[in-house]
């Protein structure tokens, strides 16, 4: 009897171990897993002064100032393949008594223009600096244009300028990147 108990219990335990199963689960759902982080990053900032719009040497107005920076991360595969939407926020604080036109041209490697953001900046005064907020959402087909860019040219244009012009034009900007992996 005892021997039969031995021989019986081994298969029972074996059956226990090898009939173990995984139930009520669906591993195909793994295909639906997506990471959707939302990342907020500073973009660019500047502090222009009124004197930047007047050439002291030649005593002539400088109506447009430009600067360029690479933003190569936009063009990297992680962003290029997974960026769904980008929200830009530009906040200008202007104490120069002039309106401005600000332009952000996104260019690709061959300096071809892929996307442009343009906005007007309200005029202000030194006593009462004026804040202009501008929002731009890029999504859909435009995303491909944005992510094919690797640099941005920033142009700030003043309608007129003279030697007595005073004040500052400040920009803060950030982008919210909606990614989906």
């Amino acid at each position: 009897m005892k021997r039969s108990l031995t021989f019986l219990s081994i298969p029972i335990l074996l059956i226990f171990c090898f009939t173990a199963c995984v139930k009520d689960t669906d591993f195909k759902q793994g295909d639906d897993v997506s990471l959707t982080p939302v990342v907020e990053l500073d973009l660019i900032y500047f502090n222009l002064v009124a004197e930047d719009f007047f050439d002291q040497v030649t005593q002539t107005p400088v109506l447009t100032v430009n600067d360029t920076t690479k933003i190569e991360f936009l063009n990297e595969s992680g962003v290029r393949e997974n960026l769904v939407k980008a929200d830009f926020q530009f906040t200008f604080t202007n104490s120069i008594p002039r309106q401005f036109l600000a332009e952000f041209n996104f260019l690709n490697e061959n300096n071809e223009q892929k996307y442009t953001i343009t906005t007007n900046v309200e005029s202000g005064s030194e006593d009462d600096p004026v804040i202009t907020n501008f929002f731009e959402t890029i999504e859909g087909a435009d995303i491909t244009r944005l992510t094919s860019s690797n640099k941005v040219v920033v142009s700030v244009t003043i309608p007129s300028s003279d030697i007595n012009l005073e004040g500052t034009l400040n920009l803060k900007s950030k982008t919210t990147y909606f990614l989906e992996f």
Partner: peptide, 23 residues
């Protein structure tokens, strides 16, 4: 620490490369 890219709008001198902010 980083607060984004600060542009300083240098006077344009022909033939001179821009400031390599990003690098």
């Amino acid at each position: 620490a980083l607060q984004g890219i600060e542009l300083i709008f240098p006077p344009i001198v022909n033939g001179e490369p821009g400031i390599p902010y990003y690098d």
